[in-house]
């Protein structure tokens, strides 16, 4: 065996260690990442309003609707 197996395993493990997608981003290279449209939720206000509207039309109570669901469409 086993030499071939050993070599294959070592190549897989070594490439796993070296070819991982992680890269260190220096603090001064984060200018573009810091832009608001790069955030997970680029428009938090819009999302919360949409969530509220969606919640008010759902049958079940939602965390976004103060009135508590029911599907009445009440805000």
């Amino acid at each position: 065996m086993k030499v071939t197996h050993f070599i294959v395993i070592s190549i897989i493990l070594f490439s796993g260690a070296t070819l991982s997608g992680c890269a260190q981003i220096a603090p001064w290279e984060r200018g573009n990442l810091a832009k608001s449209h790069m955030a997970l939720d680029p428009n938090p206000l819009q999302s919360s309003i949409r969530g509220h509207i969606y919640g008010s039309r759902e049958a079940a109570a939602s965390i976004n609707s103060a009135g508590g669901g029911g599907g009445c469409g009440c805000f």
């Binding site: 065996m1 197996h5 050993f6 395993i9 493990l13 070594f14 796993g16 260690a17 991982s20």
Partner: peptide, 17 residues
């Protein structure tokens, strides 16, 4: 063989870290 693989895994982990 398993021992060798374990050793390699440990070495790769240390390299990653």
């Amino acid at each position: 063989m398993i021992k060798q693989a374990n050793l390699l895994f440990a070495a790769s982990l240390m390299f990653c870290l």
